[in-house]
Amino acid sequence: MSSPDKIDVRYVAHLARMHLADGEVARLQPQLEQIVGYVQQLGELNVEGIEPTAHAIPVQNVFRADEVRPCLDHDAAMQNAPLAREGQFIVPKIIE
């Protein structure tokens, strides 16, 4: 695991689509490092022989049958859209 003092706050902010002022970067730098450093204490534990797990509860194979359920009414689906046209959600032009 990388050491916490290498956090690139601007990069992380960009991934989260957040705009940070210089002062905010300076303030967040030690805070983030402190948080990650705290979590990294877990790295000190000896986990040899322990299966990695993504969930805290020992449950698996929770499935749904392939049966159609009612959808949202179209008008209800669109009611929070700031802009709509021809039944679609309007977003700034996508450039490929």
Binding site: E86, Q88, F89, P92, K93
Partner: peptide, 13 residues
């Protein structure tokens, strides 16, 4: 699926 208008794009989910 996205569709392109002149100055914007439309999304159909």
């Amino acid at each position: 699926k996205n569709m392109h208008f002149t100055a914007s794009s439309g999304i159909d989910f």
